[in-house]
Simulated scan of single mutants.
Amino acid sequence: MDLVARTEAGGYRERLLAGAVACLQEKGYARTTARDLVAASGTNLASIGYHFGGKDALLHEALADFFERWIARVERTMFATEPAGPREILERAMVELVDVFEELRPELVLFVEAYPAALRETALRERLAEAYARCRTVGGDMVRRALAQLDVEPPTAPEVIVSVLVAITDGLLLQWLLDPAATPDAHQVVDALAALSALLA
């Protein structure tokens, strides 16, 4: 059996991604080696090149995969049941963006650790930028879909709304990693946004 057949039959791609996440959580972005990835995934060096083109591309894909899983989680919660109004839509989203920090801590730490590397590595910077762009696109579609259920027009471009919510999430994440007790939860965030909106109206 050739390499392609073995990797497809054994699900090597998925195992490599899972191994990459495990290595990133344990060692961080800069310290993870190709041999670490092979050991964690139970695969081989050739499979990294075949499925991803190299170690760095695999690590980048693992980070992007985390974004995808987080986006899917937000979407499931937002549309689990019919929302009562726009505020409930926002609260559902913020619960999955903010109140999950403790649960997602290992992934969030490696995500933050990737930022300094991205400032110097073009490929990683571009991959993270693509992940953010996908957040804006998919999130914008979620906003349109959710408001359409309520027969409400978006107050501004949905992608801009999502970009601001992502910025709030990123900022709160950094605060939480340093001082969890002092970081607002999702309900407090929505209250603060509502208060600001009333002041600016």
Rank of each mutant, 00 (worst) to 15 (best):
A64M: 12
D141H: 09
M78L: 08
C135A: 07
F101K: 12
Y115W: 15
L104A: 01
E121G: 11
P116Y: 08
L110G: 04
A133F: 01
L59C: 06
A84C: 06
L108P: 04
A80D: 07
A131W: 15
R92E: 00
L63D: 08
A84M: 12
Y132I: 05
L128Q: 10
G139D: 02
R136K: 09
T81F: 08
Y132S: 07
K55G: 08
T81G: 10
V138G: 06
T77M: 00
P83A: 00
R134I: 02
D56I: 05
T137D: 09
C135M: 10
P116F: 05
P106Q: 09
V112K: 15
R76G: 10
V98S: 05
R120A: 03
E75L: 11
F66G: 07
V112F: 15
H60K: 11
M142H: 06
G139Y: 04
P83H: 06
V138N: 06
A84E: 13
R145V: 00
V74T: 03
L104V: 02
E126L: 14
R120C: 00
T77Y: 08
A129N: 06
R144T: 00
G140N: 09
L104E: 03
F101G: 08
F66M: 12
E91G: 01
V100M: 03
K55D: 01
L97R: 13
R73H: 05
Y115V: 15
L90T: 06
L119H: 13
L119T: 08
L119F: 11
E96M: 09
L128M: 14
E82N: 12
K55L: 04
M78T: 03
A123S: 14
E68C: 07
R136Y: 07
E68I: 05
F101Y: 13
L97I: 03
P86Q: 04
A84R: 15
L128Y: 05
A118Y: 12
A62S: 10
Y132T: 04
A131K: 14
L124C: 12
L58A: 02
A146P: 04
T122E: 15
D141E: 12
R127G: 02
I71W: 03
M142L: 10
L110P: 07
H60I: 11
E113L: 14
D56R: 14
R69K: 14
E102W: 10
L128W: 06
V100Q: 05
E103M: 01
R136L: 00
V74E: 06
